[in-house]
Design a protein around this nucleic acid. Structure first.
Lengths: 130, 130
DNA sequence: TTAAATATGTTATATTATTACACAGCGTTA
DNA sequence: TAACGCTGTGTAATAATATAACATATTTAA
């Protein structure tokens, strides 16, 4: 909870914007929208985005280069993310599936690698687009 | 098998290069390397890459914007990919884990979405970098 | 109260990817 | 065989995504 309160001015502006959207936003579309709030340069946006990703307030949809708010209040750290993406309407939903999370969390390869994070993206067609 | 033989000139040149590397290559580094073979423009590279991804000969590492050859002869279609990525040395390995694949293949959300594809990337530290 | 860490603002530039246009080769089919 | 669709090539221009470098301010903690 206190994480939210210690966000800086730019971070708050950008998180607000992303939280108002239920779909992922792209960096330059964010930039366009926050110009009226005095944020003028891409770097200002990317700095805020990077921080927000780091603290788990938002996630990056890697295959789309876009950023979506995390609705899971428990998810303070962006270390385990699962998304479904409709390839027709581009609707993106974050998935919280206990069983799946367990499998992913418990996964061990045979190379002795130590995992700290994962990102899973499912692609297909949503109900509306089938 | 016959897919390989029907690749075009540019597609072959670029697949050869990627297959010689055990690590992912970036589009513009590929472009640099194939200039001596007469491929001069980014678009020529991206067109070949897109085709090779589509037929499953290579995969895109989304979090790195890089392309790696698929070593799995069965994997003709890029529809189910799992990678481990070392965040220190950037070593990337494709993972084939039967049990994990099963769980991912069988996953159903509660939204009636029809999945055709997924991509999973694990991040952490490899044995050498721990 | 100084140092370290974090954030800001700005300019320029690097990196990644696509649009648009002209044309070539190949197999189908009418 | 000619017309067509499909896939691929080549080239130029440009769009979209992201970072480097520098100067300065603010907050935090010792």
């Amino acid at each position: 909870m206190q994480k939210q309160e210690t966000l800086s001015k730019n971070q708050k502006i950008i998180l607000d914007l992303i939280e108002k959207s239920d779909q992922p936003l792209k960096a330059y579309s964010i930039l366009f929208d926050v110009k009226k709030k005095g944020i003028n340069a891409p770097l200002q946006v990317y700095r805020a985005l990077n921080k927000l990703v780091k603290i788990g307030k938002i996630h990056k949809i890697e295959s789309r280069n876009a950023f979506i708010a995390c609705k899971n209040s428990k998810c303070q750290i962006a270390k385990a993310t699962v998304f479904s993406i409709c390839e027709s309407c581009e609707d993106v939903t974050e998935i919280h599936d206990h069983k799946l999370s367990e499998h992913l969390r418990d996964f061990k390869d045979n190379k002795g690698m130590k995992y700290t994070k994962y990102n899973l993206e499912f692609f297909g067609l949503c109900k509306k687009c089938i």
